[in-house]
Structure formats: C-alpha cells, structure tokens
Amino acid sequence: MESLNSRIRLLWIAQGAIVAAILGAVLVGVDRIVVDVPMGVIAAVIAVAAILGIAYAVRLYQVWQFELQDDALYLERGVVTFVETAVPFVRVQHVDTQFGPIERALGLSSVVVYTAGSRNADVRVPGLTPDRARSLQDTLRELAVESDTDDAV
C-alpha cells in the first residue's frame, strides 16, 4: 500500500483553517448584528475548530492509502466513514491529473479516475508529487487500455 505525500497534511490543515476562519467571521457578524458574543467565545470556537481540523487532517493522512492490484485500483480513506473502494481497470473511462492553487504551491497534484458509475463516478487520489501523479496516470491508462473489452455503456 502506498501512502500520500506528507505535504498533503498542510493542504488539509489549510482547508481546516479556512473553515475555522469562516466560522469566526460568521460569529463576528452575529456579534455585530444580532447578539453580543463575547470575544473569548469566538476565540475558543475558532481554536476548537482549528484543532479539530488539524486532528482530522493528520488522521486522514494516516488512513489514506492506495494500491494498484491485479485487476483494480484499490483505495482506503475516510475518518468518520472508512471507505475501501476498488475501481477495476476495465471500468476506467479516462484519467486526469489536476491541481489547485494551494496544491500547486505545495508542489502536489491529484489523479482523478472517472468511471461510468452513477455516483462517486470520479475517484480522486490527492497528494501526489507531480511525477508520481503522471506515472500513476500513465500506468492507469495503460492498464485500462490493456483490459479494455467491448463492453462500453
């Protein structure tokens, strides 16, 4: 099983921080417009949200793993709900590499695997170095072509 690049924690922590900041902003707004919210309460809420965010990011990183098996891309992820997904290579429609602004700053990128499935039709493997992402994309593409059957939707 392969783990993600450890820098992905920073991305997730940043996302948690953004949520905490939004929460803080909302509370400040409530304080100004609706009822008085003591400064201490706001600080405490932000602090708790930030700590939870960090804990979540760390735990998610520990949990996230993926592996190329004989017939499928296999992933394990999830903190609250732990999900193990197998994406058979035959079912891969196309494979993308993507990165957002924060990911780019951290030198990370994601591989997104699309299937014809109804829900969760796309499976994302985040936190890969650009090289690893490209090699994973190539491997998946080759495996998908290799196992191609005459069974498109």
Binding site: V80, T81, V83, E84, T85, A86, P88, T115, G117
Partner: peptide, 13 residues
Amino acid sequence: YYRIQTVSTRRSV
C-alpha cells in the same frame, strides 16, 4: 456481475 463499475466497503464510526 459484468455490469459492476466499482465496489466499495463503507464503515462509519
């Protein structure tokens, strides 16, 4: 079986 796209096992807390 030949119509399966993905298979997942989910476990909540």
